[in-house]
Design a protein around this nucleic acid. Structure first.
Lengths: 163, 163
DNA sequence: GCTTGACCTTCCCACCCGGGCAAGGTTCAC
DNA sequence: GTGAACCTTGCCCGGGTGGGAAGGTCAAGC
């Protein structure tokens, strides 16, 4: 099959398949006489693997690594687990940082009346040395303003630490 | 003062100041006879404002907007609040998505023994139609594996909804 | 056989926010 | 005058993908 069909069946764009090939995730595809890329079932499976791995946030280099482990039938599961765990920790760190940002911002918004008057604590904090931007959280945790529909986010889902 | 000194006083790199100027956040700087950019206290303040806004995650276009509100002495605080709130919601969405990813990954890791055997559920899930990747969380919430040092992350810090 | 439209090819640009480096000019102290 | 430390502009790089241009190919219909 040609790239369009392979792309559709793997659930990615043709462009991405070419990109993955260029990135060395796929190896050079078979070519028709006219130069069209040709794929088989196994190729589609591999692209699907890549797509799923991207979907859970693995980077291209990480997927390269995952694929090498996948290709090596004798690899220990430990190796895969380690890679996934590292990725999880990176995700967790990123989430923490974003959360800190969001909390800071929430504090700023909290202090802003948001009325017609021009005095805005948000701008003031960005402009001057308002300590609210220093990230010092009051004892007892940050304030918890009312919210219409809390998303019920799942936290504390944590794999075991690295061995 | 020249760009190096201004950069140091504003807490950003000289490169970033030039970048902000090119992005239209700063207006064309005064120039010395030789073409050096020259700054005054007000310029440094403005750069500091930009730096702080970047620090809490505002994008360049958003900061452009914030600056226009800052420059407009008669702007209602409401406008600023709205912008900050939109940014907060974007952050919150991003955090949610990352959290979903991390949870999925955690479930995968959970199911992987991580021993010397080559059967790895993580690879299996990425390769095949393992429903674990579909994101269906079991009733009662996702499993909560033991963790050495939970970061005590602050959640539920939520500003009021948009009016 | 020819046209048409859908597909394929490669290559370049764009995003975002800078870091890093190069080649060259300027300033200041010694 | 000379060297160090600054400044200038400009280009390439990252990550992962979309968009588009310019051109070749294939299959169906006339």
């Amino acid at each position: 099959m040609t790239i369009g069909e392979a792309a559709e069946r793997a659930g990615v764009s043709a462009k991405r398949i070419r990109h993955y090939e260029a990135a060395g995730l796929l190896g050079r595809a078979q070519r028709s006489y006219a130069g069209y890329r040709l794929y088989n079932e196994a190729d589609v499976e591999r692209v699907r693997f890549i797509g799923r791995a991207r979907h859970v946030g693995f980077s291209i280099p990480q997927i390269r690594h995952l694929l090498s482990l996948w290709d090596d039938r004798s690899r220990p599961a430990q190796d895969v687990r380690r890679l996934a765990l590292a990725h999880w920790h990176a995700l967790d760190t990123q989430i923490s940082e974003l959360q800190t940002l969001a909390d800071t911002l929430a504090r700023l918004i909290e202090h802003c009346q948001g009325d017609e008057r021009p005095d805005c604590p948000i701008l003031a904090a960005l402009a001057g040395g308002d300590p609210i931007l220093s990230g010092t959280t009051p004892v007892g945790g940050p304030p918890r303003p009312a919210m219409d529909n809390p998303p019920e986010r799942s936290r504390n889902l944590r794999p075991e630490p690295l061995e």
